[in-house]
Amino acid sequence: MSAQLALDVRNLSVSFPMRGRDADGRRRRLLAVDDVSFSVARGKTLGIVGESGSGKTTAAMAVARLVPKMAGSIIIDGTDFGALDTEALRRARQRVQIIFQDPYSSLNPRLRAADIVREPLIYAGATSRTEQDRIIDELFEAVGLRPEQKALFPHQFSGGQRQRIGIARALSTRPSLIICDEPVSALDVAVQAQILNLLKSLQAQFGLTYLFISHDLGVVQHMCDDIAVMYMGQFMEYANRESFFAAPRHPYSEALLDAVPTIEVGAQATGGKLVDGAIPDLTKPQTGCRFASRCPHVAAGCEDSVPLLDVWPGTSDHQLACYRAAEFAAS
C-alpha cells in the first residue's frame, strides 16, 4: 500500500515564533499547523480547502521543506524527505515542485522563458545542455507554448501563458509531487478553465501527483480525488470526493459549501448561518473544538476537549472531527 503513496505525511505540526514570552518564560509560538496527517497516492490529487489563515499553505510549504516543521514525518516516494539535511536535502528538492498563485511575481523578470524552465534542471545537476534543451522543447509543447516563445521574457506573456511557464518549470525535474498553491485564483475566469484543463491532461499524460491548495470548492471538486477541509491549523473533515460532496458532515464544511453562490437564480447563499464568534488564539493551547465559537450547532462539551478526526460509521475513509455530527445527521 505505502509503496503506491507519493506522499505520506504523519502528525505534521508547524509553529512560528512570536514576540514575547508566555507565563513559563518560553518564547510564544503560533501553532499554524497542529498535528495533521494526510497522504496522496501516485497519480492522484489531494485538495486542502479552507479560509485564509487556516494553515493550508503553511502545511504545503512544510511538505516542500520551505518552512521548518516542528514535528511529524514527511515521506515522499518511500523516503523520509522530512529527515533530510543540507546536501542530501538540496539534491532531493527536485522531487517536490510548486506552482504558485501569482504568475506575475513568481517568474524571474530577467530570465527568458526557456531559462526559467531550465533553472531547476541546472540545480538538479547531471544533465547536459543539449539534454536540457530537449526537455525544455518537450515541456513547451506539453504546456501549449510555441517554440519561438522560449526566447521571450515574462512581461511579454499574458497571465495564462505565464502560468504555463510556471507549470513547465514545475514539471522539468519530473517531481514525485507537485504542490499547486491556488494555481488559478489570480487568473481571469476563462483562462482558469484553460489552466485547470491543462493540469488535468498533464496529470493523465505524466502520472503527476498533486497537492492542491485552494479556497474555491468548485475548483477543488473538479480537480481533486480526496478533500481535506482545514480550519485554524487542523483538519475538520477528510474524505474522498464522492463521499464528501454527497454528504459533507462537518458544520464548517457545510457552511463553506452553503456560502458558495450558485447559478440557480433566487437560491441565495446562506453563509450568514455561521455564528460571528471570536477566532481562537493559536498562540495558546487549544482546549476545545476550534470551530465552536462560530459553529451553529455548538453544544455543551464542544469546548471541553479537542475533537479528533475519526472515521464516520459506515464509510471506509470519511473522517471528521466533530462531537455533534452524529446528532444532527440523525435529525
Partner: peptide, 22 residues
C-alpha cells in the same frame, strides 16, 4: 467554463468547456 459545485460527482467531466484564447 467554471466548475460549479454538484452533489452528483459522477456527472463531472474530466475537462471543462473552454473559451479559447484571451
Amino acid at each position: 467554463c467554471v466548475p460549479h459545485i454538484t452533489s452528483n460527482v459522477a456527472a463531472i467531466t474530466e475537462q471543462l468547456p473552454e473559451i479559447d484564447g484571451i
